[in-house]
Design a protein around this nucleic acid. Sequence first.
DNA 1: GTGGCTTAGTTGCATGAAGCAACTGATGTG
DNA 2: CACATCAGTTGCTTCATGCAACTAAGCCAC
Lengths: 159, 159
Amino acid sequence: MLRRDYPGLDCSVAKALEVIGERWSLLIVRAVMHGNRRFGEIQESLGIARNVLSARLERLVEEDILERRAYQEGPPRFEYFLTEKGLDLWPALIALLHWGDRYSPSPDGPRRLIVHKECGGGVSERGTCESCGKVLHARDARELPGSESESTPFAAEAI
Amino acid sequence: MLRRDYPGLDCSVAKALEVIGERWSLLIVRAVMHGNRRFGEIQESLGIARNVLSARLERLVEEDILERRAYQEGPPRFEYFLTEKGLDLWPALIALLHWGDRYSPSPDGPRRLIVHKECGGGVSERGTCESCGKVLHARDARELPGSESESTPFAAEAI
DNA sequence: GTGGCTTAGTTGCATGAAGCAACTGATGTG
DNA sequence: CACATCAGTTGCTTCATGCAACTAAGCCAC
């Protein structure tokens, strides 16, 4: 990507893309929302090269989108959590997810179903609950297995 | 970016990013929404290298996000317009714009103001009208000058 | 009709990011 | 002691990006 910034552009979309527009960045955020917290988990779930993941995590922590917390001392080991700033990417992710679903659909329907924790209603393209109509945020939603089954807290204890 | 695809990832966000996740792609879509239709206009408004713009436009046309239309024969000249698929990126762009605005604010308030054409109300992070509450789409909104003044049809005649 | 201007690209080259595989370092297990 | 695990780091190759210069095709003025 040569440079990650877009010099001279006074545009909020460009500012956002300077932070999360690099290859893999947004997918890492999504992986963490999905419940992957450790280096190895994220690496495996995305199939990203380890050196690239290392660089991206460092930058995402620098940008205050992820937080790195030690979960043991022995050999120091860390987990990555989303900050508020990171969780606030949820509406953008939901919009992209719906767009991807609409225009590159998988043969067996939506790959994963995001639902409102409280009432179980589907989450619309705009991040609102299709059943109760509430405007949702990252912590209000969780992910259902869809076709694959795995761990499924969409930002459940993401903090 | 080496590869633009994310092989092996069964995720709608990844599918979306395979199409519009390359450096510059989303900014080109935004530039066209903003009213830039010609090669030179887009190039100048973004400061992108001409060969890269050429490659991106070709791909966006291939992916049916932009449509290339001749506006003269003499020396063949073209303009680029958004398709429905391209216009449907609006909610994602709005979400990113708000996120960028919140976390990389410009010193003099929002860089550009997006408003509901019909009633003049502001457009929320979710792409709804803050005044009348309607769920908006690309064609329902337009852009106000903000701090800079320029042409301002946010997808006004984007088709 | 020759030189210059505009528009929309294309070509060639230097740089640097991404991918891959192998390695490190600290620790825990049989 | 040998081996495995986890979280990276290092070295190397390949391909995308950015820059600048060039092409092409018509238009305009003198």
